[in-house]
C-alpha cells in the first residue's frame, strides 16, 4: 500500500465502518442546523459541506474531565473524626479517529501540543488522548466566511497536525498519509491507487489557497506595533462592542485556558478540569477583589496578546491562531480579530 489512495464517494462509508472496528470514530454530522463532531455509527450520515461549528478540540481536550477522584473514608472506629482520603485517577481513552476535521483544526492541536506535551510538566490526560488519536483532515476547496488561515501560516490544505489529508477530487476522495499513524489507517480498507489523482488534488489545493483572503493590509509588518498594543484608546475603539462572553474562546481551536474545581458529595468527590475563558471577569479575579485584568479591554488585549505576541515569544515565533474564522463568524457582536491584528501590523491605517 502506497502512502496515497483513492476512494469513490460511495465507498467513503465503508472506510468509516472499517475504521470504527478498531477505534472510536468521530465525524462531522448535522445537528439541526449546526455541524458537530459525533461518534460515527453504521449508516449514520456524514456532513462535510462546511466546517463544524465546534471543531474536534473537545475530543482530545474535553470541555470537562475528571483529573482525580477522592473517597473520604472513616477507617478508624476508635476515632470517628479521623477521615482518610484516597485519591484515584482513571484513564480509559480508547483508540480514536477524528475524521473530516479541517486543516486549521488539526493545526490547532499542534499549538496545544507545545503547551501540554513539550514541557517538563506534561499533561498526562491530554498526552494520552493525543497519542491515541489519528487525525484525518479534509482539505478546503474554498474559504468560508471569516477564514484567514493563509495569513497566519496555515492553508486550506495545510498538513500540520494531520495524519492523513483527504481532498475531494470530484468523483471521489484522494488520501495522503502524512505519518505512520496515517499509513496505518489507510490500510484498513482496500483503496484504489491514488497516484493518478495526485496532480489533480494538488491543483485543487493550490487553487483553494489563492481564494483565501488576507485580512492584513499590504504594508503589514511581521511584528505588531507595541505602541498601539499598549494603547487603551485603541482597544476601546476596537472592542467596545465585545460582550465579554466565551463564544470566541470556546470555539477556538487554539484556546486552551482552563479552570480546576472540586465537587463533592458526602463521602466522595472529584477534581474536574473545565474550559475557561480569558474573556470572563472572574477568570483573573482574586479573592481580595483585586483583578489584574479588570476590564474587557484588558482581557481582549490579553487574548490577542496571547495568540500573537506571548505564545510566539515562548514558542519560536509560532502564532497561536489557525485562522479558522470561528471567533469572527460566531461572535455576537461580529468582532473581527483579523481586522484588529491588521491594525496592529500597520498602525497608520487606524
Amino acid at each position: 500500500m502506497a502512502d496515497t489512495g483513492f476512494l469513490p464517494k460511495e465507498k467513503l462509508k465503508d472506510f468509516l465502518e472499517a475504521l470504527s472496528k478498531d477505534a472510536v470514530v468521530y465525524a462531522p454530522a448535522l445537528e439541526g442546523d449546526i455541524v458537530l463532531f459525533k461518534e460515527y455509527s453504521q449508516g449514520k450520515d456524514l456532513y462535510l459541506d462546511r466546517p463544524a461549528n465546534l471543531g474536534p478540540k473537545s475530543i482530545i481536550y474535553p470541555q470537562c474531565e475528571t483529573l482525580l477522584s477522592f473517597d473520604f473514608k472513616k477507617n478508624d472506629p476508635e476515632d470517628p473524626k479521623k477521615v482518610d482520603i484516597e485519591l484515584k485517577t482513571e484513564s480509559n481513552f480508547a483508540n480514536t479517529v477524528v475524521f473530516g476535521c479541517r486543516p486549521c483544526d488539526a493545526k490547532g492541536l499542534v499549538i496545544y501540543d507545545k503547551v501540554f506535551i513539550d514541557t517538563d510538566t506534561a499533561d498526562p490526560y491530554y498526552k494520552e488522548r493525543r497519542d491515541k488519536t489519528t487525525i484525518i483532515s479534509f482539505a478546503c476547496e474554498a474559504p468560508f466566511a471569516g477564514c484567514f488561515c493563509t495569513a497566519v501560516g496555515g492553508g486550506p490544505a495545510d498538513t500540520t497536525g494531520s495524519d492523513v489529508l483527504m481532498t475531494d477530487v470530484g468523483d471521489g476522495f484522494f488520501f495522503e498519509a502524512l505519518t505512520e499513524k496515517g499509513k496505518a489507517v489507510l490500510k484498513s480498507v482496500p483503496m484504489q491507487d491514488g497516484a493518478s489523482y495526485k496532480e489533480k488534488a494538488q491543483k485543487i489545493k493550490s487553487e483553494a489557497e489563492k481564494k483565501i483572503r488576507n485580512p492584513f493590509p499590504k504594508d503589514a509588518t511581521e511584528k505588531l506595533s507595541q505602541k498601539l498594543f499598549d494603547s487603551d484608546e485603541f482597544w476601546e475603539k476596537v472592542v467596545s462592542k465585545c460582550i465579554s462572553c466565551g463564544a470566541c474562546t470556546y470555539l477556538c481551536p487554539t484556546c486552551y485556558c482552563f479552570n480546576i474545581t472540586d465537587e463533592k458529595t458526602k463521602d466522595k468527590g472529584e477534581r474536574i478540569r473545565t474550559w475557561d475563558a480569558c474573556m470572563f471577569n472572574h477568570f483573573t479575579l482574586e479573592t481580595s477583589g483585586h483583578n489584574p485584568r479588570p476590564s474587557k479591554l484588558k482581557r481582549f488585549r490579553n487574548r490577542v496578546g496571547h495568540k500573537f505576541l506571548y505564545y510566539p515569544e515562548k514558542y519560536n515565533g509560532v502564532i497561536a491562531c489557525c485562522g479558522c474564522g470561528r471567533c469572527i463568524r460566531y461572535c455576537p457582536a461580529s468582532v473581527d480579530i483579523s481586522e484588529i491584528v491588521g491594525y496592529l501590523k500597520d498602525p497608520k491605517q487606524k
Binding site: 445537528e31 470541555q63 460582550i243 465579554s244 462572553c245 466565551g246 470556546y250 470555539l251 470572563f280 455576537p332
Partner: peptide, 12 residues
C-alpha cells in the same frame, strides 16, 4: 445538550 456554557446568551 449542545450548550457549551459560553454564556453568550447571558452576556447578550
Amino acid at each position: 445538550d449542545k450548550c457549551i456554557r459560553c454564556y453568550a446568551c447571558r452576556n447578550a
